[in-house]
Write a protein that binds this DNA or RNA. Sequence first.
DNA 1: CGAAAATTTGACATGACTCAACTGGAGTGG
DNA 2: CCACTCCAGTTGAGTCATGTCAAATTTTCG
Lengths: 195, 195
Amino acid sequence: MKTKLIEHMRQLVALSGEDAQTVSDAFKEKQLQKKEFLLKKGDPSHHMRFITAGCLKVFSLDNDGNERILQFGIDGWWVNDLYGYLTEQPSVYFIQAITDSTVLQIHRDTLNALYDEIPALDRFWRIKIQNAYIALQERTINMMSESAEERYSRFITQYRTMEQSIPQYMIASYLGVTPEHLSVIRKKISSSELS
Amino acid sequence: MKTKLIEHMRQLVALSGEDAQTVSDAFKEKQLQKKEFLLKKGDPSHHMRFITAGCLKVFSLDNDGNERILQFGIDGWWVNDLYGYLTEQPSVYFIQAITDSTVLQIHRDTLNALYDEIPALDRFWRIKIQNAYIALQERTINMMSESAEERYSRFITQYRTMEQSIPQYMIASYLGVTPEHLSVIRKKISSSELS
DNA sequence: CGAAAATTTGACATGACTCAACTGGAGTGG
DNA sequence: CCACTCCAGTTGAGTCATGTCAAATTTTCG
């Protein structure tokens, strides 16, 4: 359903019924099975992507081949390798479905053509990128100054809607700790909650 | 001198001589002494700010009153609390001069008025914010998966132009380590360089 | 020069990682 | 339906990385 996307956009900008229809038509739905890749490192990243169902992760690989998860996404979120999309360079990140998922995609050329017709889109993206930047700044500063336990506590309160769909070892990767250590942290927290 | 600013903008977008003059006139110069605040938490953040000389830091305070440095800036960089600027909310960060500095400022109202007259400005900011976002993503992922020593090595190679103007304890804060530990890291690196 | 701030050093404590073993659940094939 | 395997999660021992605190040293600056 594309109504979710339109509602999402209307939280930030006004769209006439006609514009909403145009935007709806421009996005194509794509189904993904669990573990299926939406984008791999080196691929061109031609689309902006909005999640309507499921759960995905954006990650890179370090020198030892370990995943470093940059971001999760669930329905109502955008996922992309913005770098690849904006610069038209090969993607530096992987995007993979954690569970069966559905995304709506719009091609860069289609979107660019729409900017003239629907100026609200321009404004929408500017606000989106600004908000993403602000959130990322806060994440960075927290990650650098908080202990692993504090980061985990923050994660579960902030993202408890995602938490259920995501295996623990991926949360560990997102938080920058080992799965073993995260397990210890969880034990510690649950025992202190009893008192 | 405002030529620096115009040159900086022309690296990304085309500006006619007339436009360049208009932009130049719109920016006001502000001198800062060492340790002087350009912005404090809670202040409104009405300006976009371009550094033409000196060195500044953007930081917040944690619960114990310790600085958590988010960003440094030297000439040719922009510094701001984007959140405060864009949302017109009180600033959440402090901006303070590390050395005597000069910045060029433009007020939000002036800038907004210019967008119609000079569309290139719109494009300039979009690219700027995108680049900042991409760089911040990479910083976040590195900070979370690298050791303190790796982060420091990356810092000095990436920002060796700033390094001289910035006291070590501030670099420690930026890297998320204690000043004592950074001192140990430096000793270790310098001794291994000899061999 | 003298005081204050920044940096270094060292002893010790704690946080986080590594590695290996174990547990328990979710398929899967017989 | 059972036995088997695989994978995520847990546990524990040992180690390394980093933090804390206090003191010594060096640098900066009035």
